[in-house]
Design a protein around this nucleic acid. Structure first.
Length: 791
RNA sequence: GGCCCAUUAGGCUAAUGGCAGACCCUCUCGUUUACACCGAGAUGACGGAGGUUCGAUCCCUCCAUGGGCCACCA
């Protein structure tokens, strides 16, 4: 035995460092654009790089890497690129925090420089962890070649995002409409739903007297927002609420303002909440807004962008919302219109950053039509294989609940700008293909000019117009939802795109099915009319040692970098595959378990060391026992391949591990040791060769089967056997003929003998008499006899 | 509040309409020309209540507990 293995006692992190460094610098996993092989492409989820990767990233990328390595062994040219998400809020918030700047103070241009500064510092850290995990991305270098690292904020990526928008705009798939937004009155900006926190705030529930016009009767309505009475568009009660059935269709008159409002039954009102009567206001909260849309009621806006009341609020005009509320209560009380006030804890939406209470303000935003496409999309979805199958349900559930078109514009900075310019009633739409920044650039001369949606010329035909650039940007999902188009070189390499589309696999977490997956399917369909994936693999979460979600605030984060340092990538990958099926359930991350995987790696090394001391025979006439074990691993090969095809690594690895420890190490090796050494020449040369041949056969096969999961250790060992696993094919199983159940009998018999010796206080190599070899094991008599020194 | 998923030994996990199988831990014993990060063995489990069935850990219903996603409503 020569080579590295001889020097190794344990699998260790130093070994890994050498190997993964080599991989990273080599081009061994590079995508060959000229390939004649079939293409297998993985649309990897580009992680946000504002912080180092977390355990969830680490584990899920390990799985993707297993898929990629398996497919390579199956003869595919595998497209497995790394993407980095660099757009959007997390980046902006990171920059604000790190450099202590605010876009409202330093201005857009300067602020974006800070964002870029942040991005340049963090990118390297996150890719480094991937390399240490042994992830076989096609490349670790940023570039535009197929398979190279892509950045979602690169001019090319953004140009493609804009191109798709321009086409959609032309086709009329995008429109602008007034809609209610979350408004932070302190920071003076719209904010995304994800930036909203909910806080329990002490508030008062006020019961207020109204009048019914037709009958003159007094009704009492409860509200937490009395200052909004002026915006009330309807009074509702539950259709089953007998107290108010007689009010149906009548008219309520609002106190103080004296406005007439229709009263109608609507299930949104709950009988036992408040008085059972609800005033629906156009700016109370999001459900109110939806109500107004459904009922086609024209909203009344009473709050300005700065959080003060406007002219619609009458005597409250100019007051801040809270002051207005107090003034209103005062007024109601003085007119004896206030029945009572109750203290309640009100769950109030507040801005995560400013802590200001959110107001809902109507503003124009761009929408992408999606409601009309639901049916077609569902047909498309049928053509995609989901792993696990049930996970398609998450998607359908989400689609069921979609009730408005997709708002795609945001009032933000570090994101893809919306490529439009305006001048009076004219709109300039640039030519697709370039990256545009209208907020600081003039429209190109060759941009189309539209009036009422019709093209009436080019910008150069209107030399006197002063153009105002669009300042809004796209929702980040509008960028992310074309990732598969980007990696497959849509538009930039049509020939390749045609060959490679749809992408083979979309791996992703269940929590972004409604965003990333749904939007990608929608956008892919709009661009190509086809499903954009063949397979979708949905995974669950990585939890802490107690089964809780890891989060910074709980302080229960297990850092993958720490695991890598302590136990290494191989142990972590083996753990990831052994812990369970991540598409079926969450993983509980335990350091102890990851540490325990090192044992298996060492076992593999030790077995290999043992086998390497023998010469490998070129061929052999196999004994029955050897045939039995070979057939067993052939059978295991078939099962493993079938499971890998279904992205199931858990079951095969469990079987392979069992085979390694039990069948192979404890039983087969013990049984044939004597025959392989043949020190006392009790066996024929043929018999001895058969044992050695089989030892190599089993080991080599085991290495091949486990290679996608533990690529470093298996390839290192295989190299000592003269095998390059990176060029090995995943074997097709040969049919097996032996009675595999005999293997179980053999292990039973071995245990029986070992136990007997123990009971008699004999050493395991001592001779023992009086043990009968079972009839069905007669074929293996010689091995059994020598192994146990039966006399 | 809506929806989804889970509940198996001290911990973690698997399979199954008819003996519930590993691993980690614990205990006992042992050291064999690959391995003490070893070997042999032992203890120990189907959340609760109904129902379907000859038979239920598995199928159904309800309850309890835990987790997740979404919505958070006058």
């Amino acid at each position: 035995m020569a080579g590295k293995l001889a020097e190794i006692k344990n699998w260790n992190v130093e070994l890994e460092r050498e190997i993964t460094e080599k991989w990273r610098k080599s081009s061994m996993f590079k995508f060959d654009a000229k390939t004649k092989k079939k293409i297998y492409s993985i649309d990897t989820p580009p992680p946000y790089i504002n912080s180092p990767i977390h355990m969830g990233h680490a584990v899920t990328y390990c799985f993707m890497d297993m898929f990629a390595r398996y497919k390579r062994m199956k003869g595919f040219e595998v497209l497995f690129p790394l993407g980095l998400d660099r757009n959007g809020l997390p980046i902006e918030m990171g920059a604000e925090k790190k450099f202590n700047v605010s876009p409202f103070v330093v201005g857009r241009e300067k602020f974006m420089e800070y964002c870029e500064k942040l991005l340049n510092e963090t990118t390297i850290e996150s890719t480094d962890s991937f390399a240490k995990l042994g992830i076989s991305f096609n490349s670790y270098e940023v570039g535009n070649n197929i398979g190279e690292v892509y950045l979602t904020d690169s001019p090319d990526y953004r140009a493609l995002t804009q191109s798709t928008f321009i086409e959609l705009y032309r086709k009329g798939e995008v429109y602008e409409d007034n809609r209610i937004n979350n408004w932070d009155p302190k920071l003076q900006t719209t904010i995304a739903d994800s930036e909203i926190d909910y806080k329990d705030i002490q508030s008062k529930f006020s019961d207020i007297k109204w009048k019914v016009k037709e009958t003159g009767e007094e009704i009492v309505i409860g509200t937490t927002r009395p200052e909004l009475i002026c915006t009330c568009g309807r009074v509702i009660f539950n259709p089953k609420d007998k107290r108010y059935l007689h009010l149906e269709g009548k008219t309520a008159i609002s106190p103080i303002f004296g406005r007439e409002v229709k009263i109608k039954a609507h299930p949104l009102a709950e009988i036992d909440k408040g008085t059972g009567l609800v005033m629906m206001c156009s700016v109370g909260d999001l459900s109110d807004i939806q109500f107004f849309r459904e009922q086609h009621i024209k909203p009344v806006i009473a709050i300005n962008k700065d959080g003060t009341m406007n002219e619609n609020a009458g005597f409250l005009q100019g007051l801040k919302v809270k002051q207005a509320r107090e003034k209103m209560i005062e007024e109601l009380r003085s007119k004896s219109l206030l029945v009572r006030q109750t203290d309640i804890l009100h769950r109030t939406p507040v801005s995560e950053r400013s802590n200001a209470e959110i107001e809902f303000i109507e503003m124009p935003e761009f929408y992408l039509k999606q409601l009309d496409l639901k049916k077609e999309l569902r047909e498309i979805i049928k053509k995609i294989d989901f792993y696990p199958e049930d996970s398609v349900k998450i998607l359908h559930d989400w689609m069921d609940s979609i009730s408005i078109d997709w708002p795609i514009s945001r009032r933000r900075y570090y994101a893809t700008p919306i490529p439009l310019w305006y001048s009076e009633e004219l709109t300039a739409l640039p030519v697709p293909g370039e990256y545009y920044q209208p907020w600081k650039e003039s429209p190109p001369e060759n941009s189309e000019v539209l009036k009422n949606g019709k093209v009436i010329g080019k910008v150069k035909d209107f030399p006197k117009q002063k153009w105002r650039g669009e300042e809004r940007v796209f929702d980040t999902w509008f960028d992310s939802s074309i990732s598969e188009l980007v990696i497959l070189k849509y538009k930039s390499n049509p020939e390749f795109f045609k060959k490679a589309y749809p992408a083979s696999l979309r791996p992703q977490g269940k929590e972004i099915v409604r965003t990333w997956l749904y939007y990608t399917l929608l956008r892919g369909y709009l661009e190509t009319g086809k499903p954009c994936f063949k397979d979708v693999w949905i995974h669950q979460h990585i939890l802490d040692e107690k089964g809780k979600k890891m989060s910074k605030s709980l302080g229960n984060i297990i850092d993958p970098q720490e695991i890598l340092k302590e136990f290494g990538a191989e142990a972590m990958r083996l753990w990831a595959s052994s812990e369970g099926d991540l598409s079926k359930g969450d993983f509980i991350c335990s350091k102890e378990k990851i540490r325990a995987e090192l044992k298996t790696l060492n076992k593999l090394i030790n077995i290999s060391k043992f086998i390497l001391q023998f010469e490998k025979p070129k061929k052999a006439k196999l004994s029955d026992l050897d045939k039995l074990f070979i057939d067993y691993i052939e059978n295991l090969t078939r099962e493993t391949g079938e499971s890998y095809e279904k992205y199931d690594f858990y079951h095969p690895i469990a079987s392979l591990r069992k085979f390694l420890w039990d069948s192979f190490a404890s039983h087969y090796i013990e049984l044939v040791k004597n025959r392989a050494y043949n020190a006392e020449k009790k066996f024929s040369k043929e018999e001895s060769e058969s044992a050695k041949y089989t030892l190599y056969y089993l080991l080599e096969r085991l290495l091949v089967l486990m290679h996608p999961v533990i690529p470093q250790s298996t390839s290192l060992i295989a190299a000592e056997l003269g095998i390059n696993l990176f060029e090995s094919e995943f074997p097709d199983a040969k049919t097996w003929k032996s009675k595999i159940e005999l293997l179980e009998k053999i292990t039973e018999f071995n245990s029986y003998v070992w136990k007997a010796k123990k009971e008699k206080n004999l050493s395991l190599k001592a001779e023992i008499s009086g043990i009968e070899i079972p009839k069905e094991l007669k074929d293996f008599e010689k091995d059994l006899k020598f192994c146990h020194s039966l006399i």
